[in-house]
Simulated scan of single mutants.
Amino acid sequence: MASYELNAFDRRFQSISLVGAIEQQGSYSINVGYWLRDPNQLMQWPELEQGNPRQDFLWENTCYEIFIGVHGEDYYREINLSPSQAWQVYQFEEYRYPEEMPPQTANDIELNQLKRTHYGLNVSLDLSEFMLKHKLKWSDMFLGLSAVLNTSQGTQYYAMQHSSPNADFHNKRDWLHQF
């Protein structure tokens, strides 16, 4: 299991720490956990939903995100995971394209389990259809972890790294996990 400390885009904001961990499970599944430390209880949490519904615009509230890129290719997937236990997957042909809102839904990644925990969030995803359709091996892919955190001190943007002048989770340079 590989773990990463996610950094706030606003470097002055040190009140919440966030760690993401990625574990390959079997031939086509991954497990991702997010551990959040909020000693001052600044987080604002959405209400829990039953049945893990797919919903758009989850990033407008507290939302954990996984980006899946493919070496040498422009296309990628964005997975949004809410602590409400709602989720969604979007497909992009290249950087933020197509530009429609909400983005185009992808149906080639399935949810095995999504659960809000006392420490943050845990998700298990089935990538078999995505990987088989594009003839991918684990070594062909790389991942980025990020989060939008709504706090009593405003919205904070966390990622593995921030190399753009603005918080930009779609910047592939910041997707650091290699299989």
Rank of each mutant, 00 (worst) to 15 (best):
S3M: 02
S3W: 03
S3L: 04
S3H: 07
E5M: 05
E5R: 09
L6K: 05
F9I: 07
D10Q: 10
R12I: 00
F13W: 09
I16D: 06
S17A: 07
S17F: 01
I22T: 04
Q24G: 00
Y28S: 13
S29L: 01
S29G: 01
I30K: 01
L36S: 01
D38E: 01
N40R: 14
N40V: 05
N40A: 14
L42R: 00
M43F: 11
Q44H: 03
P46L: 00
L48D: 03
G51N: 10
D56Y: 11
F57T: 05
L58P: 05
L58Y: 00
E60W: 03
N61S: 08
T62P: 02
C63H: 05
Y64E: 12
Y64D: 08
E65K: 02
I66G: 01
F67H: 09
G69A: 08
G69H: 07
E73H: 13
D74Q: 12
D74C: 04
Y75I: 03
Y76T: 07
E78P: 06
E78L: 11
I79H: 01
I79P: 02
N80V: 09
P83I: 04
S84C: 01
S84V: 02
Q85K: 01
A86M: 05
A86I: 05
A86L: 04
Y90A: 14
Y90L: 08
Q91M: 07
F92Y: 15
E93S: 15
E94N: 13
Y95I: 13
Y95V: 12
R96M: 14
Y97C: 11
P98K: 10
M101Q: 14
M101I: 14
P103S: 07
Q104D: 06
T105K: 13
A106N: 12
A106I: 11
N107M: 08
E110T: 09
Q113I: 02
L114A: 03
K115E: 11
T117K: 01
T117Y: 00
T117P: 00
T117F: 00
Y119V: 10
L121V: 06
N122T: 03
N122A: 04
V123Q: 02
S124E: 09
S124K: 04
L127Y: 02
L127K: 06
S128I: 05
E129K: 11
E129L: 10
M131W: 04
L132C: 12
K135A: 15
K137R: 12
S139Y: 11
F142M: 06
L143S: 09
V148F: 14
V148K: 10
N150P: 00
T151Q: 14
T151R: 13
T155D: 06
A159F: 03
A159E: 03
Q161F: 02
Q161T: 13
D168Y: 14
H170Q: 09
N171K: 13
K172G: 07
K172N: 13
R173T: 12
R173L: 13
D174I: 06
D174T: 07
W175H: 12
W175Y: 08
H177P: 01
H177K: 04
